[in-house]
Design a protein around this nucleic acid. Sequence first.
DNA 1: GTATTGCATATGAACGATCAAAAGCGCTAG
DNA 2: CTAGCGCTTTTGATCGTTCATATGCAATAC
Lengths: 409, 409
Amino acid sequence: MVGTDGDRAGDVIRPLRATVGKRPTIEMVASYCGVSRQTISNAINAPDRLRPETLRRVLKAIEETGYRPSHAARSLRKDATNVIGCRLLPSSYGGTGGVLDGWFHALCAAARSGGYDVLTFASSTDDEEIAVYDDLLRRRAVDGFVLTNTHHIDPRPAWLSEHGAKFVAFGRPWGTRNAPHSWVDVDGANGTAAAVRHLAGLGHTRIGFLGLAKGSGVGDDRYQGWASAMRALDLPTKGLVERAEDGIASGRALTEKLLEGPRPPTGLVCVSDSMAVGAIRAVEDRGWRPGRELSIVGFDDSPIASVLRPSLSSVRQPIVAVAGELVAALLAELSDSNRRPSRILLAPRLVVRESSGAQHDSARLVVRESSGAQHDSAELHRFDEVAAPAPAMPAPATQPPREKVSANA
Amino acid sequence: MVGTDGDRAGDVIRPLRATVGKRPTIEMVASYCGVSRQTISNAINAPDRLRPETLRRVLKAIEETGYRPSHAARSLRKDATNVIGCRLLPSSYGGTGGVLDGWFHALCAAARSGGYDVLTFASSTDDEEIAVYDDLLRRRAVDGFVLTNTHHIDPRPAWLSEHGAKFVAFGRPWGTRNAPHSWVDVDGANGTAAAVRHLAGLGHTRIGFLGLAKGSGVGDDRYQGWASAMRALDLPTKGLVERAEDGIASGRALTEKLLEGPRPPTGLVCVSDSMAVGAIRAVEDRGWRPGRELSIVGFDDSPIASVLRPSLSSVRQPIVAVAGELVAALLAELSDSNRRPSRILLAPRLVVRESSGAQHDSARLVVRESSGAQHDSAELHRFDEVAAPAPAMPAPATQPPREKVSANA
DNA sequence: GTATTGCATATGAACGATCAAAAGCGCTAG
DNA sequence: CTAGCGCTTTTGATCGTTCATATGCAATAC
C-alpha cells in the first residue's frame, strides 16, 4: 500500500518511470494507479467485478505501462499454459511439397486469435513424436496437441488418451472404430466422387483410379469415393484400378499398366498429385496429351498443380477451414473437460484445370458449392455420435451427413 | 522431511504411488527418495555438487517417478523460458511453394537438441509481426526470436534492438550497413556465379539474367554474382539483363523480351524458380526445348524443380545448415549477453538437371564442393567484424572470405 | 579439546500471477 | 443504534522452481 500523503482515491497517478522498472509486473501497475494487485488482475480476468470508474482507471494504467501478465507466473498458478503443441509436418509430405504450410499458417492464426500460442516440434517417427509429447506433458509446457497425418496403425491417439492428454486429430482414426477423441478431416471420398462426376460429365465412361495399397486409410477413403460414384453412374469398374505406394514413378508405372490393358480408361482419378504427375508422364511417354487422350485429375492441389503444363485438375482440401475447426474443437475440449468428442468432416472442392480436358467454358462447372468464399469454401458435416451410430467402415463416405452447416471461410 | 521410523540414509524408498500424485513435483521426488528439494534440483542443474552415491539415488528416483521440472515454475524463477519465437513463413513464399518447410523442420530439431522449444506464429505484415513480438516479449513468453525473410526496408531488426530483444536473422540486413545483430545467410551471389560458370563450361557465351527490380537485396545479391562471374570470364553483359517482380508470368514475359532482342542469350540464369518456370514457358511457346535452344538455371531448388519436365537445374540453399547456424548463434547470444554478433554466410550448391542442357555425364560437374554430405553440404564463411571492415555494399559477394570452416552436415 | 576448513545437504525467500476469503463501506431493515 | 446485506477492494496463501544462505558433519589444524 505504501501509504503516501493525500490519498484521495481520485487520480493518484505516480510518475511512471519512478514506479515501473523494465518490464512491469502486476504489483508495479497496482502501485502506479493506487490499487491492489488483485484489482489489476480482476480488470483483466473479471472486469465486471470492478466499479466502472475504477476499471477505467486501471485499464488506463495498464495501457500506459504496457503491462501484460507474465506467461510463466500465470501458467504456474493456473496450471494451464495456453499453448498448443503441434508437430511440424515432414517436408516431404505429399511428395510434391508444400501443401500444408498454408494449413499451419491458418492453425497458428486461429490459435492466436483464441488466445493460444503454438509450440512446434519436428519428429520423424511416431515413437520420436510420442517422446516429445511425453516431454512436453511432463514439463507441463502445453495444454494439448493437434495431431497431424494420422495413419493406419497409429500409436499416438491411444498413447495420448492413456496419458490423459487433450488433443484433436487432423484425420480420422483409421482402423479404429469409434475412437473417443475429437477429429477433423476432409472427406476424400467426396472429392474423388466429384472428380468422377466431373469426368463423366465430360463424356467419359471408362474412368480409372490410381490408388494406394489397401489399408492406408486415406487411400481407401478416396478409393471408396471413386467406386461409389462409378456405381451410382452405372459405369464399369473392372480392370480400372491400380494401386501402389505414392510417388511419381509409381504413378507412371501404374498408368502404363492401365493403358496397356484390354480396355484402357479415357479418364483417370488419382489418389494424389504425385500419382497424377506420374500419369501425365506416362501419357506423354506415348506422345499423347493429358486432357486429350487421357483426362487426369489429381488430389491435394499442391503448388505444382497450377504450375505444370498442362496444368493439373486437382481436388483441393479446405485447409484453412480445417485449421479453424481443429483449434475450435481443441479449445472447446480444453475448456469443458468431459464434453462429447466432435467429429467434423469437411468437403473438398475440385479445381478444374487443363489436364481433365474440360473446355474453357465448362471450367465453371466445378462443384456446385463453389460459389462461396473465394479462398477456402467448404461444406461441413458434423457427426453426432448419439444420433448416428458409428459407421461400420472408417467413415460414412457416401451416406448423407446428419447436419450440414456452412463453414466459416 | 516427514520423519518416519528407521531413517537409515541408505535406501529409504517409500512406495511410489503413496508419495507421488498425478504429475510429480520436485517435492514429491524429494520425499520419495528421502532428500530435500534442493538436492533434486542440484542433481539436474549442478550434478557435481552431489556425492556420487546420492546422485545415483536421486537420478534413479527421477527416472522412476518420471519427474521433469515444470516449465512454468522454472521460467518464473529463472526469468528465461527456453523458448524461441519464430514467424511461420507465408505459404506463398518462393512462389513455387514449400522451399522452406525443410528449413523450419531443421530449426525445430536444432532448437530442441539445444534444450529449446520453438513457438510459432503467423503474420502477414511487418507491423503485425512486430505486434506479436511485442506481445510475446511483454508476456515474457520467449527468450529470443529467429527472423526470416529480411528485406529491404525492414523495421523489425531495429524494433527488436530498441526493445532489447535477442534475435538472429535469416538474411542479411539489406540496406543497413553494419547492423549490430547476428545473422546467417546464403551467399546468393556465389550461387548465381556458379550457375554462370556451369553454363560457360557448357560452351555458352551469351548468358542472360532474369532478376528482380533493383533494391530488393536478395535480387541485387544474386545479380551481382551473375555480373561478376560474367566479368571474370570476359563475357558480354550488355542487353542480357531483365528485371521485374517475381513470378511465372513475369519470367515468361522477360524471357520473351530477351529472346526478341538483337543478340539473344543461349543460357539464362534466373533469380528464382518461378522466374525459371516462366522462362521455360517462353521457350516452349516458341516450339523450342529448354536445355537445347536455351539453357536455364533457376534458384531455390523448390520441389517443382525436380518434377518439371524438363527438370530444372537450380541453386539449392543449404537450409539445414542455415537452421543449425541460426540456432547456434541465438543460443550463444542468449547465454553470453554482450558477445560480438556473428555473421555467417553459407555457400549454396548448384543442382544440375535437364534444363541447363548438360550431358548426362557432365552432371557430375556441379560445384566442386559437392562431394561432401549428401543432403545439405555447404561452405561456411564467417565474417569477423574486427578483422574485416564492414563491406560497402550489403556483403562482399565476390571477395574471398576471411575464414573458411566446413559446416556441420 | 576446540577452532577451522570444506564439502554435502537443507532451509527460507523469491519469482509474478490467481484463488479464496476477509475487510471496508454505504444502505436498508429491525 | 446495531445488525445484516451487497458490492467493491484488499490481504494472505499458493503454484513449483531456483537462488542465497544456513546447517550438519567429518577431517584437519592449532
